[in-house]
Amino acid sequence: MRIHATVAAVSGALALSALAVPAAHADDSVGDTKISNVVVNGGKSVVAGPTAAKKVTVTFTVTDNSGADWAQAILYHGPSVEKSDTGAIADSSDGEAKCTKVNATKSTCTSAFTLEPAYNLTNASAGTWKVWAVAVAKDDNFVQKDNVKSFKVQRAAKLTVNASPEPVKKGRTITVTGKLSRANWETGKYAGYTGQSVKLQFRKKSSSTYTTVKTVKTNSTGNLKTTVKASADGYYRFAFAGTSTTPAANAAGDYVDVR
């Protein structure tokens, strides 16, 4: 069957990291088969640390008047599946999704994938990924989509803070330092995230809410340093809003006793 050959070509290309598949593998369909309700990683961004493999689950619905026969999803990074630079095929032995019949015309399908630093995760691949998918019905109708869902794959971030001296007299200068780092998927370590805007925030001892004091930029090694005047007992922290390639991060508050 032609659609099986297409999937085999795409899967094989991904497995070999060649990702050079014919343009015929773009959107295509015959009949009334549809793919809908695609959810990647429970609707959350995929955040991976520097070394540990990340398991990602994709679920979707297949509908056709004759019922679903089989389906498959593939994850990839790039403008299209033909021009992908990396990706992942499902962990199942045949690469196909596990489809459970809901009724005569609808099935719910699930695939599990593994994303692993230094294998199919490179620093350049952080950001938007896409889901290529195909579904074939019992009457041989099918639908094939180059991008049924986009999602984020991000490099895990860490943020630290230290406010000193402790204790300090009211009105004196407090120096606040810290570091913003993120996973380097190629070295297997965390590395400083340079040139990023980070907010210094303060929470009074009697309050549960942080307010922004000022914004500071990380230096060439991801380090942060600024000063404030001691005004009241409370907690200082740095807060990073995140980028398309790196999630938001907040440092644990550092308490300063003002006397």
Rank of each mutant, 00 (worst) to 15 (best):
R2H: 09
I3F: 00
H4V: 14
H4M: 14
A5G: 11
V7C: 12
S11A: 07
L16E: 04
A18D: 12
V21D: 08
D28S: 14
V30K: 05
T33L: 01
T33E: 04
S36K: 07
S36Q: 12
V38D: 08
V38S: 07
V38E: 10
V40P: 01
G42S: 09
G42I: 11
S45T: 11
V56Q: 04
T57C: 01
F60K: 00
S66F: 07
D69T: 05
A71Y: 08
I74M: 01
L75C: 04
S80Q: 08
V81E: 09
D85F: 14
D85A: 13
A88I: 06
E96P: 08
E96Q: 14
C99E: 01
S107P: 02
C109V: 10
L121V: 03
N123V: 07
S125W: 02
S125C: 01
G127N: 13
W129V: 05
W132V: 11
W132Q: 08
K138E: 04
V143R: 03
K145W: 15
K149Q: 14
F151E: 09
K158A: 06
L159T: 09
N162Y: 08
S164C: 13
P167A: 00
G171T: 11
T173P: 00
L180V: 14
R182S: 11
E186Y: 09
K189D: 12
Y190S: 02
A191R: 15
Y193H: 15
V198E: 01
K199W: 13
K199S: 14
K199Y: 12
Q201P: 03
K204D: 14
S207N: 03
V213A: 04
S220H: 10
T221S: 12
K225V: 14
K225M: 12
K229T: 08
A230W: 07
T246C: 09
A249F: 08
D257N: 13
